[in-house]
Design a protein around this nucleic acid. Structure first.
Length: 826
DNA sequence: ATCACATGGCC
DNA sequence: GTTTTGT
DNA sequence: ACAAAACGGCCATGTGAT
């Protein structure tokens, strides 16, 4: 799809149409043979296209080149004042104040394409690998325009860049036709391309970055399925990358926006003069509110020329929205959104809405941006830029070459970021010290939550043994609670963080209070990795997750805590001023046992066993399940057992009984309704409502929705399959809660039975399965339901019946009550 | 006051 | 949380 | 192997409506 090869106005129209085509005619890269359920007729009104042309027309009179930007940067030292704003306020303060990540301070956001703000780090976007850019001093250095978002994007150029990256990866010398200026080289052709197309978003050097530039890059990224960094956001340069990060995470200083689909729809309706119900139904068809907004806006007649939105303006408004609360806050928020929407043009509308939704849906998210930051940083690093071709080649050859390391292992940025996930620190540190020293500056710091290590699901015990063949490993109970990362700073401050780096200190005052009692003398600072689990004080046993989740989250006073917790600690990452994450797990466990005492029902070491045989593990697994746990965690003890938060994000294994094929709760359920899919699933049902059969009342009782476990093939197939069985109104023998979240978009006759697997059964506030059998008024639902297969052999009335569901629920709970095996002999 | 709904955050 | 998909 | 994007149940909390 040759985007941006025409005039700007055409391009925008093409882009929109292309997206609609994509979403209607052939969504998720499918073979598009399935008949699409919906059609949408778009009548393009081009009323505001001329504005777009005016706003986005590039400034050809002052073509910008690489060499210029780089030489500009090379010798500009940071002024004292700028340094202050970045480091003294932005870094030092932050180090002292415990914080949640990621946070971006305004001072960072104010880094525009102006190279003086982050000296040495601005990259102009060009298709040629900037590493070789300093060879091109033949280009004219006379412009005041900095094009940071270059959206020209021929297949050739993508290839060229990929090639450059590849040759670097291989450690070989750069391909000649990539960087040389004499042959029909790509800088020339890139510039020619730019010159000959109207597709460069450019702006004056000291002007703020237009939002359109960012959005056009998003368009580019969305148009490709590739994840390659170079191909995607390389052209953006360092400063702009920081902004992408912001725009991707619509959250400011840990404050949420408080904006969801519902308010957004109101805002869109409001801004486009359409009714909410129309917006809603379009959304069902198109599967993306952003696209609906964009199309709606195009259809709308507009008068006058809107303001040009800047990235800074958009972010400032997001920040403003996050601060609005209280009475009539929703109206105020809508008003703020509208103030942006009226000025949005083309895909800006779409991406603004998606940003507010919290999903960009461009196939690129934070991790990839992080890699891009590494790249952008390394190639714009001063020392790198000054390298001669020979030096560059030597660096690439050498085993210790920074470039090579980054490109191959991406470790240099990933690790520091995982240890200290805070862009306000990482980015200025990169700017100041370069990537090589980043790990020295950005280290695990108590008071700043690090990314927790996660576990990979395992399908069988033999798989565990296969993966850890000839390696010492340890099995631990997998407790069903909430991840808790407990920090103590040198000054005695204690903080507790969740798996997603939220501050839980307020939620667990009881833990804060108890903690000093379990710390061994001489321990001054630490970071613990734990699971907080609901604890029955009388029976001295673990309670289910559902109980834990009823705890208050705010204004918690120790006196009125209803649900006690026991902390199960399984790792220590920092002790007495020293990071332990590079130590082996064995050594960390030793430190842990030396530095903390157990206290029954309050603070306990996770039950662990250094097993070796399948039998031993199997027994231990059974014991864990009997003890109200989810299963086992399996971790290497010596080899490669360092705590590696992001690079190997899933270095541990988890074994749950429901993963094991043939084990776990499996139900045969009737499909009674469907929900329109969004995004990747546009045009099909993205989820289904399932029911069990109640013999007594001869009714189908809703039990859960299911959406995972379905392949694209399934989705396509089921869309067609249910077509003839659609009904307008649910029959009287369907029992369900008629609440917005449950009522399906389409009802079906009971014709098909699906096998569904679940981790647990739960008492449900909304579902009706076995209503009255296990709870006087509530029904039963499933935890983590997933589709396994169609039961062609079963008719709807042979589905799992209500009584069976109730029996399964009772069995599950009986099991845990009897199996009170939690005497800790760790 | 009380309820319904939306949202975010756990799993 | 689970799962599928593309790279 | 990894990253991304679909989607699940259930809870507390905040806001708007009754």
């Amino acid at each position: 799809m040759p985007l941006y090869s025409r005039t700007e106005a055409e391009t925008v129209v093409t882009t929109v149409s292309a997206q609609l085509e994509k979403s209607i005619a052939s969504p998720p890269q499918s073979s598009a043979t399935a008949k699409r359920p919906h059609t949408l007729i778009i009548t393009d009104s081009d009323s505001d296209n001329d504005q777009l042309v005016r706003n986005l027309k590039p400034d050809h009179s002052s073509a910008f080149t690489f060499s210029e930007s780089l030489s500009d940067n090379t010798n500009v030292p940071p002024s004292k004042k700028q340094k202050d704003s970045h480091f003294e306020s932005g870094v030092d303060d932050d180090f002292q104040t415990p914080m949640k990540a990621p946070i971006l301070q305004p001072n960072l956001l104010e880094c525009t394409s102006d190279t003086k703000i982050i000296p040495g780090l601005n990259l102009a976007g060009r298709k040629v690998h900037p590493m070789f850019a300093n060879k091109t001093t033949g280009q004219k250095p006379s412009s005041d325009t900095v094009a940071t978002s270059v959206v020209e994007n021929s297949v050739d150029n993508l290839k060229t860049e990929k090639k450059a990256a590849d040759s670097m990866k291989a450690g070989g010398a750069p391909d000649n036709n990539i960087n040389d200026e004499e042959s029909g080289n790509s800088i020339d052709s890139a510039l020619k391309l730019i010159d000959s197309s109207d597709s460069v978003a450019s702006w004056k050097k000291n002007d703020p970055v237009p939002y359109s530039a960012l959005c056009k890059t998003f368009d580019e990224i969305e148009a490709t399925t590739k994840r390659g960094i170079s191909d995607k956001i390389f052209p953006h340069g360092f400063a702009s990358l920081a902004k992408i990060v912001v725009t991707i995470c619509p959250e400011y200083e840990g404050k949420e926006l408080g904006i969801g689909d519902s308010i957004l729809m109101k805002a869109v309706a409001n801004a486009t003069g359409r009714s909410i119900s129309n917006i809603k139904s379009d959304c069902d068809k198109v599967g993306d509110l952003g696209t609906v907004a964009e199309v709606s806006k195009k259809k709308q007649m507009t008068f006058g020329v809107g303001k040009i939105l800047t990235v800074d303006k958009v972010f400032a408004t997001l920040k403003e929205i996050s601060g609005i609360s209280g009475s009539s806050s929703q109206a105020k928020k809508i008003e703020r959104i509208n103030s942006l929407l009226v000025n949005c043009k083309g895909s800006e509308t779409k991406f603004l809405i998606r940003s507010l939704e919290g999903k960009l849906r461009i196939g690129l998210a934070e991790k990839t941006v992080l890699v891009a930051i590494s790249h952008a940083s390394i190639i714009s690093n001063i020392e790198c830029k000054a390298w001669s071709k020979e030096k560059l080649e030597r660096e690439l050859e050498s085993g210790t070459a920074i470039l090579k390391q980054v490109l191959e292992k991406k470790k240099l940025t990933f690790h520091p970021y995982s240890e200290l996930p805070n862009y306000d620190i990482i980015i200025p540190a990169l700017a100041e010290h370069g990537i090589k020293k980043l790990h020295e500056i950005c280290k695990l710091t108590p008071g700043i939550p690090l990314k927790p290590m996660l576990a990979h699901p395992t399908k069988s015990l033999t798989e565990v043994l296969d993966r850890f063949e000839n390696i010492n490993f340890i099995c631990e109970f997998k407790y069903d609670g909430e991840r808790a990362q407990i920090h103590q700073l040198e000054d005695g401050t204690i903080n507790i963080y969740s798996r997603n780096s939220e501050n839980l200190s307020v939620k667990y005052p009881d833990i804060m209070q108890m903690l000093p009692d379990v710390i061994a003398p001489g321990v001054t600072s630490f970071v613990l990795d734990c699971e907080a689990v609901a604890w029955d004080i009388k029976k001295k046993c673990i309670l289910p997750f559902q109980v834990l989740s009823t705890r208050k989250r705010k204004d918690v006073a120790v006196e009125d805590i209803q649900v006690a917790v026991c902390v199960y600690v399984f790792d220590i990452l920092y002790l007495n001023g020293k990071s332990l994450i590079t130590e082996t797990l064995r050594s960390r466990k030793e430190s842990l046992k030396k530095s903390f005492f157990e206290q029954e029902g309050k603070f306990t070491f996770a039950k662990a066993l250094e097993a070796s045989s399948v039998d031993e593990i199997q027994t231990f697994l059974d014991e864990s399940v009997a003890g109200n746990c989810e299963g086992l965690m399996v971790k290497t003890m010596d080899d490669g057992s360092t705590y590696e938060p992001s690079i190997r994000s899933k270095n541990w294994l988890k074994v749950k009984k429901d993963y094991l094929t043939g084990i776990g709760d499996t139900l045969d359920l009737v499909v009674i309704g469907g929900y329109f899919g969004k995004g990747k699933r546009t045009g099909w049902y993205g989820g289904f409502l399932l029911a069990c059969y109640d013999d007594d009342s001869e009714t189908y009782q809703s039990i859960c929705k299911v959406a995972t476990g379905l392949t694209e093939e399934n989705l396509k197939q089921f869309y067609e399959l249910f077509e003839p069985y659609k009904i307008d109104v649910p029959p009287s023998y369907y029992q369900f809660s008629d609440v917005p979240n449950i009522r399906p978009d389409v009802w079906f006759k009971p014709v098909q039975v699906w096998e569904v697997k679940a981790a647990d059964l739960s008492i449900s506030p909304v579902h009706h399965a076995g209503k009255g059998l296990c709870d006087p008024s509530k029904g039963i639902s499933l935890r983590f339901p997933r589709f396994i297969r169609v039961r062609e052999d079963k008719g709807p009335e042979q589905a799992t019946n209500a009584e069976q569901v109730a029996t399964m629920y009772r069995a599950q709970n009986l099991n845990s009550a009897s199996g009170n095996v939690l005497e800790d002999d760790f």
